[in-house]
Design a protein around this nucleic acid. Structure first.
Lengths: 345, 345
DNA sequence: GTGAAAGCGCTAACAT
DNA sequence: ATGTTAGCGCTTTCAC
């Protein structure tokens, strides 16, 4: 029944013999290296096709590259991250590079285990998306293998970065709500205690952006921040606190869409109408936000663009490890939906 | 500024020298192989710790294993699939195996590219989640590397399978709705034309399960199926068709939660109340379903369990390639939420 | 432009 | 129980 296990993998030696050339020649053709005549290339390519040869990355990695890029994502459930992964995968689809991903599981220890595993597996480069690891760990990883860090502000000489302007994104929300006539705009943030991350993590920047934007609109008196976590429950608990205040806010800016989900539930349980009694906004423009029954006003970070640019930076760094590091920042856009409207009069 | 690139990677030779033993000894300790005294093990372990040695998978893969398991997921945006990945990752977390994942991108060609890439990278085993590739491709992959196929019914001598009983799941929904008093229960399925997949793909089985359950309840006259796709748009369009019928159904069983999202939107646009005017159910019990404002009745497939069992089957097969293939099937459970209630009187 | 040969880090026969 | 040695499949000097 069982198909007889394939005889043996075709190797570069088989190709060389079949094409009547040396293995060196095959290797060179494979890598488009210098020193091959057009005739040789043709012969080798034909032999490769005829034999169905595919190079074995493990062996390649012992001397050269594995043509593999590792991506660490913190949380594939947040639909924003798959966008980034798609951007990376698309950008590399027609190259020899392949993308392999592992979940970072939101822990320093777990992240270290993942980055180690990727290094040990000979990845040519790493893209770390919104890592929570301390800077020192990121730099030591980047010292071993070309690395791009996505979604953390602050620059490093050791790795390139790609991020979205969270400061501007928070301002988009505050301005949108203030333009609608809101004054008592509250914010639910993800508590950040570690001082080194305070300056780099998106959540901290969003909270900072909220405060700045409020001041810029002359609403410093109305600044109201509740610290919970970027989870549905964090939103639920945060909203309960805010709704208990007197006067209660007319708008809640949740730091992430998933937080807004919890807020919506708390608001609904409190018997309030959205947006009639209170406006709600999220951040990330995830699939959640777009769902018909939800229709959440949110901030869109071009995830695919972020991913595509990360991939390009990484490939550039793999080619030239000494090039100066780059920091790419994208501007977010506001997506206005049904959960925001002028405040009750 | 830049931390000076690490001198050189520590190799098994360094460990051997430092521990005053042979490289063979180190290799054996690493693999818990036969023929090492406790003293030797202690010495080697200490040297490994002192030098911070970590084996290089590429080199290992040339002779033995890479201790890497590849997982292909069709769609990380469907929150059901991350559950499976978590189950796999958790099950292998405390072993030497590491899990690397790649998106299958819902295409035969893309899936082939991904499985090839994983084979070329020396994966010890593959877990293919809900692949759409034809059986022949799955079998040829399984002929090269130990493989577990998740979420496809039907057995093979070449690979193990783990799936959830979609026939039973569909019956759970139909019975739930019928028990509530519904008779005109409609179903939105994902169109399946390929005959070979008709018998294996979960979507086809769910539609079949719906028909069987309706007959079992004496509702064969009421069977109403619309074929679209398992997407939000598919749900939207499918629901529009169903709502235009006279008499219109009192309940819609969407084949997947994401489909139900589109249904909810269409129903809302038609000015109908859920569940007052019409009951809606999904399938997969995704994060969507649990969101406060959605609260969708759905079918839960224990994703983590499926993942954990896949991992165990795979490791067992890696250890013994000749063991007979196993087929594990789990029973789904109904999660009743606010979108289902008795029909309007 | 081309190829012979060394060697990457590890595992597995095969001694001892 | 321990060590010696020959590769695994590829890339990379370095001759020609």
């Amino acid at each position: 029944m069982e198909p007889p296990a394939q005889p043996k993998r075709v190797t570069i030696v088989d190709v060389a013999r079949h094409a009547q050339v040396s293995t060196t020649a095959v290797s060179k053709v494979l890598r488009n290296a210098y020193g091959t005549s057009p005739e040789m290339r043709a012969k080798v390519r034909q032999a490769i096709d005829e034999l169905g040869y595919r190079p074995f990355a493990g062996a390649r990695g012992m001397r050269g590259q594995t043509y593999t890029v590792g991506v660490m994502l913190p949380d594939i459930r947040n639909p924003f991250f798959p966008d980034i992964l798609d951007g990376i995968t698309d950008a590399l689809w027609d190259t020899d590079y392949r993308v392999l991903m592992a979940p970072g599981r939101n822990g320093e220890e777990a992240e270290a285990k993942v980055t180690d595993a990727m290094i040990d597996r000979g990845m040519d480069g790493l893209i770390l998306v919104a890592p929570i690891s301390p800077r020192s760990h990121l730099e030591s990883v980047a010292g071993v293998v070309p690395t791009v860090v996505v979604g953390r502000h602050g620059q490093s000489a050791a790795y390139d970065t790609v991020s979205d302007d969270d400061l501007a994104g928070a301002a988009l929300i505050v301005d949108h709500l203030a333009d609608l006539g809101h004054r008592r705009i509250a914010h639910i943030e993800h508590a950040e205690t570690d001082p080194s991350r305070l300056a780099e993590m998106p959540n901290a920047i969003r909270a900072d952006g909220y405060r700045r934007a409020m001041r810029a609109r002359g609403l410093e008196e109305e600044i109201a921040v509740v610290s919970t976590t970027y989870t549905q429950e964090g939103g639920y608990l945060g909203a309960q606190q805010l709704l208990a205040r007197d006067p209660r806010p007319t708008a809640i800016f949740a730091g992430a869409d998933i937080v807004a989900m919890g807020v919506l539930q708390a608001v609904s349980e409190a018997g309030l109408q959205v947006p009639g009694d209170i406006s709600i906004t999220g951040y990330d423009n995830t699939t959640f936000a777009a769902l018909g029954p939800i229709s959440l006003t949110s901030v869109d970070q071009a995830g695919r663009l972020i991913g595509a640019n990360s991939a390009q930076l990484l490939i550039a760094r793999i080619r030239d490890r000494t090039r100066p590091t780059a920091q790419i920042k994208f501007s977010p856009t506001l997506v206005s939906r049904r959960t925001s409207s002028p405040p009750p009069s």
